[in-house]
Amino acid sequence: MEDFRIIYRILKFLQQSMDFEDFDSEGFNAERFGTNPNRFQALLIQLQRAGYIEGLDIVQYIRQPAPIPIRTTTSSISTLISCPAWKQGRKI
């Protein structure tokens, strides 16, 4: 269930970032969402494969911070609104 909370926080952050011209890539890290870098990366990959985010390009052999042009999709926004598991994550 903890993964759902982290995923909710990630999607909420991405949704809120749509209001700004530039994406805050420095603030988009595992620590911000209360997890470790490996889980954060795994969750991002799963979110992209499931169609909830797009624009993710992870190079696994390079460990340098770089701007990531990730954005949420309409599918993820509708999930946030309708799914009971996501609603539980909002109580954080």
Score class of each variant (00 low, 15 high):
32 R>I: 11
45 I>F: 00
71 R>I: 11
83 C>L: 13
40 F>P: 00
33 F>W: 15
61 Y>I: 03
46 Q>R: 10
73 T>V: 10
5 R>V: 12
26 E>N: 08
10 I>D: 00
49 R>L: 01
43 L>I: 15
88 Q>H: 11
84 P>F: 07
76 S>W: 00
13 F>E: 05
74 T>F: 07
72 T>D: 02
40 F>D: 00
33 F>R: 10
25 S>I: 10
92 I>G: 11
1 M>F: 13
56 L>P: 05
91 K>N: 13
9 R>F: 05
84 P>A: 09
64 Q>L: 07
5 R>E: 09
34 G>Y: 14
6 I>R: 12
71 R>Y: 10
26 E>M: 10
10 I>H: 02
27 G>Q: 06
37 P>W: 02
80 L>T: 04
59 V>E: 02
60 Q>Y: 03
55 G>H: 09
28 F>H: 09
41 Q>G: 01
42 A>V: 02
85 A>P: 13
15 Q>L: 07
2 E>Y: 14
2 E>G: 15
14 L>W: 11
11 L>Y: 00
57 D>Q: 12
40 F>Y: 13
22 D>G: 11
49 R>A: 00
71 R>Q: 13
61 Y>C: 02
24 D>F: 08
89 G>H: 08
73 T>N: 05
67 P>F: 14
34 G>S: 15
25 S>P: 07
88 Q>F: 12
67 P>V: 13
62 I>A: 07
73 T>C: 03
70 I>K: 06
81 I>F: 03
2 E>A: 15
56 L>C: 05
17 S>I: 03
75 S>W: 06
67 P>K: 15
4 F>R: 13
43 L>A: 03
77 I>D: 00
51 G>M: 09
65 P>H: 07
63 R>H: 03
24 D>N: 10
32 R>P: 06
30 A>D: 05
19 D>P: 04
25 S>Y: 14
42 A>F: 03
68 I>M: 11
24 D>A: 08
11 L>F: 00
82 S>N: 14
46 Q>P: 02
39 R>I: 12
61 Y>G: 00
69 P>W: 14
30 A>P: 13
4 F>V: 15
75 S>T: 10
56 L>D: 07
70 I>Q: 07
56 L>I: 06
52 Y>P: 05
74 T>M: 01
